[in-house]
């Protein structure tokens, strides 16, 4: 399971996309999503497909890896498409299947909505695949900083995020270890009735929670020993640097989004 689903993973490479500032990537993703919801012409959709494909190629992440890793998403996209084809009642009736009419708008709207879903997920995956998780957090924190004035604990949230990200690999490993250790004692949660299978999760979850609490305690102690007294009044080592390339990309994305909007309007 772990090795097949890739949403949230990061693959270190040295590509153009990897080198962009996380804020650039977040803004671009938002602009891209806006564009997608504005347009309703198939021709422009093919442009969007081209754009996404271009981004994937630039990122040097193997396309086969992306296709395999997003397997569950394919099903969702296919389901969305088929659902619309079957139940859309607008437009001209194209043909009937055993007295059940299929309309052309079904294909068009199904195609649009499925494409939106697909392209959005691919782009979001690309963001996490090309940006270290901590950089994503830093980027989000930058966008949220104005909210500190409204009393939102942005700094605390950022530290919490950073530590969770730090602990994900550790806890995944722990989960793997515990499930194997229980399997060695004969536990099998893949067979039997649903109730039994649910019960079989306890030997996994209880040790996992206990270990998570113990780790949290130890980590808190380590943080305290290094002078942690709260998230405010700290300086920051990490800095986001907006380079020339980032300005160009953001300008380009904005211009393209506006011109598409004007063209359609």
């Amino acid at each position: 399971m772990k090795q097949s689903f890739i949403l949230g993973q990061y693959i270190p490479r040295e590509s153009f996309i990897h080198r962009l500032d996380p804020r650039t990537k977040i803004i671009s993703l938002i602009l891209f999503v806006i564009t997608m919801f504005v347009i309703d012409r198939l021709l422009i959709y093919s442009l969007l497909y081209g754009f996404v494909l271009g981004c994937v190629l630039l990122s040097t992440i193997p396309i086969t890896y992306l296709i395999k890793g997003l397997k569950p998403v394919w099903w969702l996209v296919a389901f969305t498409f088929i659902f619309h084809v079957l139940f859309q009642r607008d437009g001209e009736a194209l043909f009937d299947v055993f007295g059940f009419f299929i309309y052309d708008q079904g294909f068009i709207q199904g195609g649009e909505i499925a494409s939106r879903l697909l392209l959005m997920i691919v782009m979001a995956t690309l963001l996490t695949l090309t940006t270290p998780p901590l950089a994503v957090t830093d980027g989000m924190r930058w966008f949220l900083t104005p909210l500190t004035r409204l009393g939102m604990p942005v700094n605390e949230l950022a530290i919490m995020m950073a530590i969770s990200l730090r602990l994900i690999p550790t806890m995944t490993e722990e989960m793997d270890k515990i499930s194997k250790a229980q399997a060695a004692r004969g536990l099998d949660y893949t067979q039997g009735r649903l109730r039994d299978r649910f019960k079989a999760l306890l030997p996994l979850l209880i040790p996992l929670f206990i270990s998570a609490f113990k780790r949290a305690e130890a980590l808190a102690m380590a943080m305290e020993a290094r002078g942690y007294q709260g998230a405010d009044h700290r300086t920051s080592y990490r800095q986001l640097v907006f380079r020339t390339m980032d300005y160009i990309v953001v300008c380009l994305m904005t211009t393209v989004t506006i011109s598409i909007y004007l063209m359609i309007g």
């Binding site: 270290p132 998780p133 901590l134 950073a162 530590i163 990200l165 730090r166 550790t170 780790r215 130890a218 980590l219 102690m221 380590a222 943080m223 020993a225 290094r226 002078g227 942690y228 007294q229 009044h233 700290r234 300086t235 920051s236 080592y237 990490r238 800095q239």
Partner: peptide
């Protein structure tokens, strides 16, 4: 501390070393 896994606060080596300095509000 004893367990190397439970005292690594940062996401990278440099971030981890920075953590204590950030707490002391050392200039960047």
């Amino acid at each position: 501390f004893q367990n190397p896994e439970n005292q690594f606060v940062g996401t990278t080596v440099a971030d981890d070393v920075a953590f204590g300095l950030e707490n002391l509000a050392v200039p960047r």
